[in-house]
Simulated assay, not measured.
Amino acid sequence: MRAWQLEDFGLDNLRLVERPTPKPGPGEILVKVSAVSLNYRDKAIVDGVYNPEKMPQNLIPVNDTAGVVAELGPGVTEWKIGDRVLSHFYSHWLDGAPARDEPDWQLGGPLHGGLAEYMILEAKSAVPTPAHLTDEQASTLPIAALTAWFSLVEYGKLQPGQTVLVQGTGGVSLFAVQIATALGARVIVTSSSDEKLKKAAALGASDLINYRTTPDWAEKARELTGGEGVDQVIEVVAGDGLNQSVHATKAAGHISLVGFLGGQTAPLDVMSLLYSQAAIRGIAVGHRRAFLEMNEFIEKEGLQPVIDVVYSFEDAIKAYEHLARGAFGKIVIRVAD
């Protein structure tokens, strides 16, 4: 089979090669990959800034995979050949609290991912594809959509009429806008681009803040909520901006820390956090049970993932370069029709 493998850190070392097609072992399925989508994590792995000591040489990257079951390993009864399936990022986290070793079982690094014509999934971990979505659309769900759902619903317990502030217009953020809107929440979106803010409004955002022209966006969010602050923040930047998120959040509100675009450390104003009594919760995607519940919701509401562009399998490098430039929505790589 053809596969992209990371022979060393750096995009120049991501190379298209021929590798043996894997055989499914007991409890495993072989998936013929249709499409994958990229997350910021995928760029960070290639750049060597995401747990580099755990990434094996010649890794096949990218978790977010949609495809079709091509072969069943011994003992597999829950799937049949031809079923449409999605990868689940934390392949051993099925429900409940995460175990300490969950990062050891992440697909797309350190375990092989889906940027190949075939991949192996554990049968108990794979997830059915929502029937109303194409494989290209569905490939956007495993990390970006589930991160938004886990933040807002599983941990945040979002209720109709509450207010959510969403940072930026990347994959997680746009899913958060769609999910929160569908749940009856008021959504505030921040971005440096008025054009992207208008697109976010079309997805359901009711209030828009350009943080270039309004640097004190947290105070603006307070103004928009009568001085109270928002119920939840989807924090994708971290770094110095984490203190603004605390200021933007209402007393005893909830901040979901899902990204690290502004850095992997944050100089936190401890007194401000103490006085606000806000909860900062690290969100590392979610478990399979929540994935299944989210997909039911997505089907019921008829939600459509926002895709910026679809690249061919041969143009995977261009897809990564596009990711580095930024996008409105998800970047997808079509592997097979």
Rank of each mutant, 00 (worst) to 15 (best):
K220Q: 14
K220L: 11
K220S: 13
A221R: 03
A221T: 09
R222T: 08
R222P: 11
R222S: 08
E223H: 12
E223Q: 15
L224E: 07
L224N: 02
T225H: 07
T225Y: 04
G226S: 07
G227L: 09
E228V: 12
E228M: 11
G229D: 08
G229P: 11
G229W: 00
V230S: 07
V230L: 10
V230P: 05
V230W: 05
V230H: 05
D231C: 05
D231S: 01
D231F: 02
Q232M: 15
Q232L: 15
Q232N: 11
V233H: 00
I234Q: 07
E235R: 09
E235Q: 10
E235P: 12
E235S: 12
E235L: 11
E235M: 11
V236M: 10
V237F: 10
V237T: 14
A238Y: 02
G239R: 00
G239A: 06
G239K: 03
D240G: 15
D240A: 14
D240S: 14
D240N: 15
L242C: 10
L242K: 03
N243E: 03
Q244T: 14
Q244E: 10
S245M: 06
S245Y: 03
V246H: 01
H247G: 15
H247I: 15
H247W: 08
A248L: 02
A248C: 04
A248D: 02
A248G: 01
T249C: 08
T249R: 05
T249N: 06
K250A: 08
K250F: 01
K250C: 08
K250Y: 03
A251Q: 10
A251S: 11
A251K: 09
A251W: 07
A252R: 07
A252S: 10
G253V: 09
G253A: 10
G253I: 09
H254M: 13
H254P: 13
H254F: 15
H254A: 11
I255R: 04
I255Q: 04
S256N: 10
S256M: 07
L257H: 08
L257D: 08
L257A: 12
V258P: 08
G259S: 13
G259C: 13
F260W: 01
F260K: 00
L261A: 09
L261I: 01
L261G: 02
L261Y: 00
L261R: 02
G262D: 01
G262L: 00
G262K: 02
G263D: 04
G263N: 06
G263I: 06
Q264R: 13
Q264A: 13
Q264T: 15
Q264K: 12
T265K: 10
A266W: 00
A266D: 04
A266F: 02
P267S: 00
L268R: 08
L268K: 04
L268P: 09
D269S: 12
D269K: 04
V270S: 09
V270K: 01
M271D: 06
M271A: 04
M271G: 07
S272P: 14
L273V: 15
L273K: 06
L274K: 05
Y275S: 15
Q277R: 12
